[in-house]
Design a protein around this nucleic acid. Sequence first.
DNA 1: AATGAAAGCGGACCATGGTCCGTTTAGGCG
DNA 2: CGCCTAAACGGACCATGGTCCGCTTTCATT
Lengths: 196, 196
Amino acid sequence: MTHLLPMADEPAPERADAARNREAILAAALRLVATRGVDCVTMDTVASEAGVGKGTVFRRFETREGLMAAVLNESEAAWQGSVISGPPPLGPGAPAHDRLLAFGHSRLRTNVTHGALIKAATGSHSARSRAAASFAVMHVRHLLGELGVTGDLVLLATAILAPLDVMVLEQQQADHISLDRIEAGWDDLVRRVVGA
Amino acid sequence: MTHLLPMADEPAPERADAARNREAILAAALRLVATRGVDCVTMDTVASEAGVGKGTVFRRFETREGLMAAVLNESEAAWQGSVISGPPPLGPGAPAHDRLLAFGHSRLRTNVTHGALIKAATGSHSARSRAAASFAVMHVRHLLGELGVTGDLVLLATAILAPLDVMVLEQQQADHISLDRIEAGWDDLVRRVVGA
DNA sequence: AATGAAAGCGGACCATGGTCCGTTTAGGCG
DNA sequence: CGCCTAAACGGACCATGGTCCGCTTTCATT
């Protein structure tokens, strides 16, 4: 026996075939997104490419958004890793101010290049997007704290991150605002908020 | 004859039946959104409620997003009117700083109450959302100018408005952050940016 | 190894946004 | 008033996300 009582909240073990299928689906999705671009990847395509029924795809990933979130996660996790333990100035070891700027710049570029995928993974309601956004807010809040900023740091962090949102960036690009200008504008915002 | 040469770019006149149908569709959409809530309004429903074919709905409003934008516009236009020429402090006549705060608060409340409709009208790519966002940016930019703020005012305005975005607000409400707290946080942001 | 119940599977099915095209109609002109 | 063309119409049709449910598979227990 393993446990008679459902121990704590171990997230419900996954059967072997289920795990195998999850991997196959994710791999197929990854490949398809890379080759065709996220907007041309249909759930049916992923299913058949993974050699699996459509129902299975939805059972494992809930929704298209969820699947895309899983795909996005593949790169996002690495990025979070480099923020937490990568080389400075993005990672630890640099002054907080430099880290904050590096963080914003990195996020800015990432949001621009992965824009389509991020949008596909972030419609209306998603558990994953929640986690990702939360990570960014927590990190910025932490840096603001180190910089001696006082106030409602969570809200301040949110406010600093909001203009880096994919939709905002797309609008700005449609208005022919260059990335460099956006970046400079963001630096200025940070300067004002931090009160350097 | 009217004009032999297509004069300037008059937006292509609309045939009488076309105009009649547009009105009927918009009226039906307005009514349905008000009674059932935006998420339960289907294009087919609107069409049949307006006594018109589905194709007609799409020809007049391009897309669901477009139709919802038209619905939203009905209230948004009034709001813009009260910003441009309504009573202070939202309208002209109050100090710029008060106007800016009033503007933010008003936008905040509006985004919260009309959240669902705004989201329905603002997916990915829409001409209307473009105009609405632009109005807000222009107005804030103008107020910042009056306040003597220097710098890239368009970007600063965008940055100030970004945290009032519907999606951001929804996330914050999901995190049990009260409206009053959000409002206070936004006031703080403005103070820092304006450099009061 | 046999067994039984829970978990998983798959593809038919549904809802809905969006397109297409053969038919109808408005309305300028002779 | 009748003609003619561009515009508009409408609903069948398509694509795709998401659900459902009867059948299959896993695997803990014996």
